[in-house]
Nucleic acid binder design. Sequence first.
DNA 1: TGTTAGCACTCGGGAACAGTGAGTGCTAAA
DNA 2: TTTAGCACTCACTGTTCCCGAGTGCTAACA
Lengths: 362, 362
Amino acid sequence: MELPERKRRILKAIVENYINTAEPVGSKALADSFDTPISSATIRNEMSELEEMGYLEKPHVSAGRVPSFAAYRLYVNELMDRHRVATNELEAMRLMMESKMREIDNIVVSASKVIGEMTQHTAVSMISRKGGDRVKRCELIAVDSGSTYAAVLVTGSDVKNKMLRLAAPVAPSTAAMLCTALNLAISENRLEYLLPSVAQSMGEDSQVYQMTSDILDFIRQTEAGSKPEVYIDGAARLLDNREYQDTGRAREVLEYFSDRSKVGELLESADGDPINVRIGPELQDPSMRDASLVFTSYQIDPNTRGIVGIIAPARMDYADVTAKLMAFTQAISGVMGRQRKQLKDAGETDEQRTENDEDTSR
Amino acid sequence: MELPERKRRILKAIVENYINTAEPVGSKALADSFDTPISSATIRNEMSELEEMGYLEKPHVSAGRVPSFAAYRLYVNELMDRHRVATNELEAMRLMMESKMREIDNIVVSASKVIGEMTQHTAVSMISRKGGDRVKRCELIAVDSGSTYAAVLVTGSDVKNKMLRLAAPVAPSTAAMLCTALNLAISENRLEYLLPSVAQSMGEDSQVYQMTSDILDFIRQTEAGSKPEVYIDGAARLLDNREYQDTGRAREVLEYFSDRSKVGELLESADGDPINVRIGPELQDPSMRDASLVFTSYQIDPNTRGIVGIIAPARMDYADVTAKLMAFTQAISGVMGRQRKQLKDAGETDEQRTENDEDTSR
DNA sequence: TGTTAGCACTCGGGAACAGTGAGTGCTAAA
DNA sequence: TTTAGCACTCACTGTTCCCGAGTGCTAACA
């Protein structure tokens, strides 16, 4: 059931007005803001119908109307102007990205910083790896005289290391043997037989047994996929919004933020859309009831993608935020794409790595 | 100039009263709270003298008095009862530490969580390494067909790795040679001659040159000491305090928190004292003017120490907080000590690693 | 039939105001 | 030196009142 044009225009105006002022909007003020002359009475009629349809709410009888969550949803889906970011803003973002990427050695952190500063909202950012990376190889490196080793795991796209502190030294030659056995087990995909066999040959009390067990744990952990790290930038900016002037509310949300895994789950839910918008109740969490999350994802490499978004009151400038997020994704994909392409090209021409490449890989 | 006994008792009572109620304390209420009968008029006289001496302040003429920062300082230095933590609380802490240490793989995070939950304040925690760790060895590991290597650096106490993405493949044998050269240069302490010599033999455009340069950067970076990671737990708890009901103030402090390096600097300033207390203006930052920081440090290994503390309004229960921090340090040093001792003992008896050991090294 | 003008009604919020009570400083007596 | 007494201050609270923005309804109008 399509909303008639005039209702759409009115609803859009109400949402935008409310986004800007955070105050219930009344019929009179709204009538004035239209260029086509239309009386406040007419608007009142339309409003009361929109209210019946569930798009508007009255805080109390003699106040104006406030958009419902359904209204925000409709606004985002159909009403909102998908405006482009001004070129000077784009330029600013590009600059910001460049400087941030240089100064901070992590794309996730940079992403949240850039988006946070651009939108002046709380930004969240994380990296999501598709599937657990299979461990391809393992190296053992003696750190000191032999009672500390570092286990280094090589996966398809990453290298991880972990210190193994042993209760007694293990000879380098023994470690080397263990390493060979491990790599054999890895390549033959027979990891589960390794521990029993070590137990048999060396005994369950041996340092080697302990070591093997630790390494296997480490491998399992790595393949299970590390819990993704979630970064949050500018949580304090939340307090700038009228809806969080009440410390109780603010506390709830900040508390929610501090449980990164919840935020991470939310972000993981990104579907194929370029921009995902979750409004208020759609976030499924009471403490976030009057907030919205807008986020997008970008490819970092074939099985890694970054997700970045902002969390702000449901009354937020969706048009602005989505535009900025889009611009960001484009910019970053540009950088990434160029980098990947370079790598390929370079395979033939052996040309020098460029500045961009260096920035992000650092 | 020593404060007479009665003034001390009155000041102490005022501070403690204010800590509990967050409300200006008046002469009458205070007189009642003393067991030795003493009239409110007398207290008024004493109070007005204490005010002259700079220990008390009046929010306005007909309110009670509020302790000044100087009063807090005096309270912490001389007046406060250094009470011990109740044994059941100690037990709770021990349990908490055990579970946290198991579930979170990082001592810094655990420390802040435990202290944060114990005190119900915002906890900060970091690790500070004495001096840049010298790199002792370097390994190169091929990740894929040769265009990606991982550089693994071994320092006295740690192992770090970093991916080197190359524009063109480098043969494993070449990498091995580079590795040997690197280790030679490291052991002979002649790193600065390496790059020029690679340039000469391989050319400045070569992948090996690029690789060497990246590795040298990485080494330099590692030896310079990574910027310490600072963890903050329960920032939202700040909002529970009356002094941060005002969102403006709260925002300032949260903003301050988000700049970890500032917090880190503060913590680094720990001197030899078991407990450090920085009250209000002593924090040297306008946004922290009415907050205090109480922190302590504990040894992790010979040149690594952990620092943990809490940030809360200047009106905080110093006695409680310091006691809890002390208890924490003791507990953690106990764990660490046992671990170290075990390592040594184990050298002779080759006994199994214990649970504690495993917990913290994970 | 849809739109508009007019009107009575609602109700949150701000201003004005008075009363309360916890607090103070001062003075004079114990 | 301490204390009782007293006058004074002033934040805070509750009440009342009024304003005005906003609504719904009705009747006139295009």
